[in-house]
């Protein structure tokens, strides 16, 4: 019922509607890419969008446990098949997969993965898909085959009106591969860690996002027990409702003083209160 971010921080970083697109999420190991992806899927489930999680480095059980730890209650969606996991990992652990969409060996891995993704997407519309991670794929298959696989996957998501995020570890691949990989997606999200201060700081930025106006600065985020919380880089708040102003403030001069508002409606309401209460309303 309540509107949620398309991806963590999207309403703060993207102006207007986030277009249907495939995004590449680049960042070092441990920065929070996987949690970001899980939150992206969970937000989709809350909005009634079916979700497919393609995993190459976590088993379905590990995914479930991790989602539970962030209070992402996906169980009802698993039961009604709105949340499906394509398991490209369990075979490595030598066990049976609990998912009905599972790759069972390294043999012709990408073809097998494509078949399972196709099966998992069956009868679903406007899906959200996560592929975590591209880096893992390159350790199992050659780079050209991985690029080819991703081009087809992202093109299909685009034509089907879905949304996808593929993760890749920064610093793990050469520039040539990374440049080609960037070309396969409609947008690039980047994460990094700043450890120059006393405390480790996680940062996120939208490098590019086709078809949307967005911020491009590095924005701090935290991993909390409810998932990723993207913070505001400024602390400018609306004089009326105290909401953080993420975009350009509405400035008005009232009785010779300059005030910043979040919306024009806030500015008008402020004037009404000021006319009733006078200077005691500050």
């Amino acid at each position: 019922m309540k509107a949620v971010d398309v991806f963590p921080g999207s309403r703060r970083l993207v102006k207007g509607v986030v277009p249907s697109s495939s995004l590449l999420l680049i960042g070092p190991a441990g920065v929070g890419k996987t949690i970001f992806c899980k939150q992206f899927l969970y937000n989709g489930l809350l909005m009634g969008e079916p979700c497919v999680y393609v995993t190459t480095n976590e088993s379905p059980e590990e995914i479930e446990n991790s989602m539970k730890s962030f209070s992402f209650d996906f169980e009802p969606y698993k039961d009604n098949k709105m949340f499906r996991v394509v398991d490209g990992c369990s075979w490595k652990l030598g066990g049976e997969s609990s998912s009905e969409y599972a790759v069972d060996s390294q043999h012709d891995y990408l073809t097998a993965l494509s078949i399972e993704i196709k099966k998992a997407k069956q009868n679903l519309k406007n899906i959200r898909l996560v592929l975590d991670s591209v880096s893992e794929l390159t350790s199992l298959c050659d780079h050209d085959a991985v690029l080819n696989f991703l081009q087809i996957l992202t093109a299909r998501i685009r034509t089907e009106g879905g949304k996808a995020i593929c993760t890749v570890a920064s610093g793990a691949h050469d520039d040539h591969f990374m440049n080609l990989l960037r070309l396969t997606c409609d947008g690039i999200l980047e994460m990094k860690v700043d450890d120059s201060g006393k405390e480790l700081k996680r940062l996120l930025r939208i490098f590019s996002l086709r078809g949307a106006k967005h911020k491009t600065n590095w924005t701090p985020f935290e991993i909390t027990d409810k998932g990723i919380v993207v913070k505001s880089e400024t602390e400018l708040r609306c004089v009326l409702c105290s909401k953080l102003i993420d975009w350009e403030p509405i400035t008005k001069i009232i009785d010779g003083k300059k005030y910043c508002f979040d919306t024009l409606d806030c500015a008008n309401t402020y004037k009404k209160f000021k006319s009733i209460y006078g200077n005691s309303f500050e």
């Binding site: 009326l240 409702c241 105290s242 909401k243 979040d262 919306t263 409606d265 806030c266 309401t269």
Partner: peptide, 8 residues
């Protein structure tokens, strides 16, 4: 202020 923020 909380009331106005909630309305918004």
């Amino acid at each position: 202020r909380r009331f106005l923020a909630a309305k918004k």
